[in-house]
Computed example of a mutant assay.
Amino acid sequence: MTISVVVPCFNEEESIPLFFEEMERVRTSMGEEFEYIFINDGSSDKTLDVLQELNLLNPCAHFLSFSRNFGKEAALYAGLQHATGDYVTVMDVDLQDPPELLIEMKQKLDQQPNLDCVGTRRVTREGEPPIRSFFARMFYKLINHISQVEMVDGARDFRLMRRPMVDAVMELSEYNRFSKGIFAWVGFETEYLEYKNVERVAGETSWNFWSLFKYSIEGIVNFSDAPLNIAFIGGLLSWLLAFVMMVLIVIRTLVFGDPTSGWPSLMTVILFLGGFQLLTIGILGKYIGKIFLETKNRPVYVIKEKSK
């Protein structure tokens, strides 16, 4: 049995040797054959040089190098496409995904033939800014209320999957990808291992609050039409409120005459309705933009160089 290890990399020249060393210890302990697939996602440092040298010294360490930065989702998709193992795992190269968990994950799959995937979830967020942890928890609560698929709070992309599940994930070839949702959507039997948060071993993360916020918006738009329903209901309620106010103004005018209208109240109504209209137009635009990108049928990524 071969285990394919898919590893997206973006400016990770310091982390790659440390990651490979740890993974080789785990491979020796497991007695399994590993196939490494590193994806250089348009790095600006010496990540590609490190991967080329690693490939020369270890033929099992393959690499794909993108022509530019396409994002982690594209890197995951490329790695899964090129993985040939009976089992496939997705891991971060910064060792925040503890490699030793692979041993227990493989044991669970061997002991439970009906189990298709063993994932991981963090039970603590120590070391993260409190504001990021708060919004992460709020995201999972929100997405599980408005989406048809359940996403486990704290779940990582780090998981060990059997080949049938990987093939099912590859059937979802959309351009706009959100892997956490895709892994849940395919619906295979999954069990989660819990672990405490681990700090990265080297380098700096490329994920800041703004990039994580945009990523969460992608997840909501890709796996829920609730924002469209909210826009429709809000628009309907605003129209009804405006109609009621119009009737009241007409009645007041007929009964009490035509008093001078107050400028503040007029501006409040205009700004409220105008702001809500802009919000709903923005929501519609987000979905239309997704449709626009899908209809272009562009490739998810472009490979400039890869190992033999």
Rank of each mutant, 00 (worst) to 15 (best):
P259S: 01
L193M: 07
T295Q: 11
G71R: 08
A184Q: 15
L56P: 00
N197F: 14
N229M: 11
V6N: 12
R27C: 15
M91W: 14
L241K: 13
D167L: 01
I131R: 11
S44F: 01
W207I: 15
L48K: 07
A168T: 09
A202V: 02
P113H: 06
P259G: 01
N297S: 13
T47W: 01
F10Y: 15
M30A: 14
M170H: 11
V247K: 10
T120P: 06
H82P: 04
R68F: 09
R125T: 10
E128T: 08
L236Q: 07
M1C: 04
K214Y: 02
E294G: 08
R200F: 02
Y287F: 00
M138D: 12
G154A: 10
V50L: 02
H145C: 14
L273A: 09
E189H: 12
G42C: 15
F38G: 06
R125M: 03
V186P: 00
I146F: 04
L293Q: 11
E191S: 13
R252W: 05
V302H: 10
E126S: 14
D167R: 01
G285L: 12
I291E: 03
L284N: 08
V221W: 00
S67C: 02
N222R: 13
A168K: 10
K141P: 03
L115W: 11
I39E: 08
P59W: 13
L54T: 14
I291N: 04
E14L: 04
Q52P: 00
H82C: 03
S261D: 00
V221K: 09
S15N: 09
C60V: 06
L64W: 01
G262E: 02
T2Q: 15
D45R: 01
V123K: 13
A155Y: 00
S211K: 05
V247I: 15
D45I: 00
V302N: 07
E33Y: 02
F243W: 06
G203Q: 02
D110N: 12
G79K: 05
S265Q: 12
P299C: 05
K141Q: 12
K214D: 12
P17W: 07
F183N: 04
G285I: 01
R200N: 06
F188L: 00
T84H: 05
D116Q: 13
E100C: 02
V250H: 14
D116Y: 04
V169I: 11
L54N: 10
I303M: 08
G181P: 05
Y87E: 06
N176M: 11
A136D: 10
R156C: 13
G79E: 09
F243G: 11
E191G: 05
Y77D: 11
A231G: 02
M165A: 09
L57G: 08
L76S: 04
S216N: 12
M105I: 01
E21W: 06
M30K: 09
